[in-house]
Structures are given as structure tokens and as C-alpha cells.
């Protein structure tokens, strides 16, 4: 049986939800899946990932090195384990940490790499990903081994497949690189939901008119059961929202189940960041706004009135 590895990103020792879709991507060819916990313990990782079909959890260590503060040494250790366990592919989340590690590992292994994949066929070495910032879909053939792919969060649906996984301790025989050191991790100022991994996103554009008014979207996000709040470039450039919240070509690429665009006209650059959302809802006063030509549900009206009404309806019916 062929083996595929999955980088499993953890926060506060909990596996991030979006990883389960990556595991589903690795399971498509019925491969035996090896999970590599990143930023968490093997025990905590095992409890979560075995529900989705993972067979082995690799408990990685390097003598004398602190893997969490040296991404180069962590990448070397994982690359060493990929060779040791003869994995034919390694998948991970296309998150900032995931794609950084995958690129480092691909470089060490002289392996082909495709990031931000929407679909992967590991048997054929064929991946589908965006090109031209989401304006086109590209099919790439990767040659060389192992195949290294970053999967766009939420692009592949997770599929439960419970089993009992084993923990495999592995002492990587690599030297600490010591060239990069994480000096400090600055936590987010508030407990926010990661935009790129959110199932529902409600975004505001220039007509939000102030940073203060984003409160209206946050209240609606809560009523939606914990949605994330995003912003258009126009709203970010006007200083109404931080760049972290920007969806679009020079911001984040998102792929939620539901995207609600409020007061966003729908520029090609904004669409580049959210067009793979399953359902797009647009609220705009201008019935000629281009976004109405490219969404699933369109509501012509004042965004504040509509969003407030939406919040009330959601609260009343939950």
C-alpha cells in the first residue's frame, strides 16, 4: 500500500478543522496516511485525526533542537521522515505556516511542489489550482517524487473514516540549521476566526464608512453561528479594517460555504479572492453593481438595513 503524509497544523494543541479536508485529499487514492503534527503533541493529534482515516501519527524529534522555533530544522526533520517512511506524497494546508513548511520540504527533497491546490490526483500527479490570481483554473502535471501539495482550506470536504491510529516515534537524523529563530509569536489582538478557514464569511466594502460600523457585521457574524468578518480592498485602503481582513487579489483567498458581500461592487480583484465560495450573496444599493452578475443571491438595498434585518431574523429563528 502506498503511503502519503499529511502535515497537521495544531493551535493550542488542537488540530485545526481545515486539516480534515487535507486528510480526505490524501485518502482519495486509498493510501495509508501518516500525520505529522505541527505545533502540537502526537497524542492530541492522534485523537483527532484517527476519526478521519489516519493510520499513523509520527512523533518527530531532533536531538538538541527545538523544532517549534526553527522552521528550517523542522522542515529538515520532516523531509528526513518522508524519506525514511518512503512517502510518495506530502500534503498540507495552504496556510501561511503550512505553505512555508511545504516549500522548505520540497526544496530539501528536490521535489515538485504545487500550492493552493483545489483538487489533487496523487496517482496521476495531476493537480488543479488557480492561476492569474483566481481568474483561471490551471491543471498541472507534477513530475518527480515525492509530490508536495498545499491544499486550499475548505477546497476538499472532510470525510469521517474512524480507525485506531498508531503513534510512531521518529528521531530524525538531521543537524539543527540554526539560521532562523522564531523570537516571538504575537497572538492576535482579539479571538478571531481565521478568514481562510471560516465556513461562513460576511464582508464589508467602502460603504461601511467607518471602522466602527464593522460592528454591524460582527453582530451578524455571531448570529450566523461564528462567521468570520472580511473586508474589500477599498474598505482596507480607507482605513476601516486592517489588512489582515482583506479578501481579494492582494489579500486573502477564501473558499467558504457561504460568502456574504455587503457594499462590495465585485471588482475582478475581489472576485479573485472569493470566487470558489460555494454560495455568494451580495447586498448592494446599486442594482447595476457587477457583483449581481456573478453571485447566487442578490439583494438590492441599504447594507445596514439589510444586515440588521438579517441579524434579527437569524436570532429569532435559531
Amino acid at each position: 500500500m502506498l503511503r502519503t503524509g499529511v502535515l497537521t497544523e495544531m493551535n493550542d494543541n488542537r488540530v485545526r478543522e481545515a486539516n480534515f479536508g487535507v486528510i480526505a485529499g490524501a485518502r482519495e487514492g486509498d493510501d495509508e496516511v501518516y500525520a505529522f503534527p505541527v505545533n502540537g503533541t502526537a497524542d492530541a493529534c492522534k485523537d483527532a485525526v484517527q476519526t478521519y482515516g489516519v493510520e499513523k501519527v509520527v512523533d518527530l524529534a531532533v536531538e538538541g533542537a527545538e523544532l517549534s522555533s526553527d522552521p528550517e530544522t523542522l522542515a529538515k526533520a520532516i523531509a528526513d521522515a518522508v524519506r525514511h517512511f518512503e512517502l510518495k506524497a506530502l500534503l498540507g494546508l495552504n496556510s501561511p505556516r503550512g505553505r512555508d513548511l511545504l516549500a522548505r520540504i520540497a526544496t530539501i527533497l528536490d521535489a515538485p511542489l504545487a500550492l493552493d491546490c483545489l483538487k489533487v490526483d496523487l496517482g496521476q500527479g495531476i493537480v488543479t489550482k488557480s492561476h492569474f490570481s483566481g481568474k483561471t483554473l490551471a491543471t498541472l502535471k507534477l513530475s518527480g517524487t515525492p509530490l508536495i501539495c498545499g491544499i486550499r482550506p475548505n477546497a476538499i470536504r472532510s470525510r469521517p473514516d474512524p480507525r485506531e491510529a498508531d503513534i510512531l516515534p521518529y528521531q530524525a537524523s538531521v543537524e539543527g540549521a540554526g539560521r532562523i529563530r522564531v523570537k516571538e509569536v504575537k497572538k492576535a489582538e482579539s479571538e478571531t476566526i481565521d478568514l481562510t478557514e471560516a465556513n461562513i464569511i460576511i464582508s464589508g466594502g467602502r460603504p461601511m464608512n467607518s471602522a466602527e460600523n464593522f460592528k454591524v457585521l460582527h453582530e451578524c457574524a455571531d448570529a450566523l453561528g461564528g462567521a468570520a468578518v472580511g473586508a474589500s480592498r477599498a474598505a482596507v485602503d480607507a482605513g476601516f479594517a486592517p489588512h489582515d481582513m482583506q479578501v481579494g487579489q492582494t489579500g486573502k483567498t477564501v473558499s467558504p460555504q457561504l460568502y456574504i458581500a455587503c457594499g462590495i461592487s465585485g471588482s475582478i480583484q475581489h472576485f479573485a479572492g472569493m470566487k470558489t465560495a460555494k454560495v455568494i450573496v451580495a447586498v448592494n444599493t446599486d442594482e447595476e453593481a457587477p457583483i449581481f452578475g456573478k453571485c447566487d443571491y442578490g439583494l438590492v438595498g441599504d447594507l445596514f438595513e439589510v444586515v440588521l434585518a438579517l441579524t434579527e431574523v437569524l436570532k429569532a429563528s435559531s
Binding site: 493551535n11 505556516r97 522564531v182 509569536v185 504575537k186 497572538k187 492576535a188 481565521d194 489582515d244
Partner: peptide
């Protein structure tokens, strides 16, 4: 590094 978290 995601979710507003930053690495120095």
C-alpha cells in the same frame, strides 16, 4: 502566520 497571529 494565520488568524492575525504574527511571528518575529
Amino acid at each position: 502566520v494565520g488568524g492575525g497571529e504574527r511571528e518575529m
